[in-house]
Computed example of a mutant assay.
Amino acid sequence: MSIVIHSQITAAVVENADAPQRDERRKALLGVRGLRKRHGDRLLFDIDVLEIATHSAYVLTGMNGAGKSTLLRVLGGLERAEIDSLRFAGEDVLRVHPYPRALRRAIVYVHQHPILFSTSVADNIGYGLVVRGFAPIAVEAIVEEAMAWAGVAHLADTDPAKLSGGEKQRVALARARVLQPRLLLLDEPTANLDGAAREQVLALIPTMVDAGSSVVIACHDRDLINLPGVQRLKLRDGHLEHR
């Protein structure tokens, strides 16, 4: 099973990277200059340039404590940092905290330990759509498709508290997917999952890229890091290396 799924992931990423419209699709989505984050007197990281292309996948690696999760939260607009300039989809972002509404809608962050409401799987997946004003009939159709995609349709009415770690991650990915993010930030999505659950989550990630999102994944997972077509960013000693 592992070999088959890993082959599917590789094929999806490589096929996406080699599409005829590659030049158009891989334009800069996010560009950040002069990104600095301090914890008190400590400078956690000082990044000269960070660029994320459209329709692309990245893994963000580094030692524990290097600031990977913090960097994802900064990029998601969830945490303050010093930023000299930020561009998104070719437009200058003049207010970096809080992000303007359009940027908040375009970027979705998924925590390593997703917070799910004590309602049902279906309600959790559809929550963002309801907040955005989608009609109930549209929410129902989109959620049904997302649950099928994530392999959790049989859990539609289940309280998330009863889910396994892998099921929670798949629900969180489905909840992100329905919002059609242009930039998806995933913090250790396969950490602490057993073999089968890990494989199921791994198989979903490249389909997000294929659907149009750029994905940045903070991880230590060698299967993600070594995938052909996935670019590597490494935080080392407060600086970002493009590898």
Rank of each mutant, 00 (worst) to 15 (best):
A11K: 15
A17Y: 00
D18E: 14
R25A: 11
L30M: 11
R33G: 02
R36M: 09
R36L: 06
D41A: 11
D48N: 10
V49H: 14
A57F: 08
L60R: 10
N64P: 02
G67R: 12
S69P: 06
L71C: 07
G76R: 10
A81P: 01
A81R: 05
D84A: 07
R87N: 04
G90T: 04
E91M: 03
R95N: 11
Y99T: 13
A102G: 10
A102T: 13
A106S: 12
I107K: 05
V108C: 06
Y109I: 01
H111P: 00
I115E: 14
F117H: 14
T119I: 12
T119R: 15
A122N: 04
G128M: 08
V131P: 00
A146I: 06
W149Y: 03
G151C: 02
H154V: 05
P160H: 13
A161D: 12
G166W: 08
E167C: 03
Q169A: 00
R170W: 01
R177I: 11
R177Y: 12
L179Q: 15
P181H: 10
L184I: 04
L184P: 05
E188G: 05
L193A: 02
E199H: 05
Q200F: 01
V201F: 05
D210F: 02
S213E: 08
S213P: 04
V215H: 00
H220Q: 09
D221L: 01
I225G: 00
R236Y: 08
L240E: 05
H242F: 01
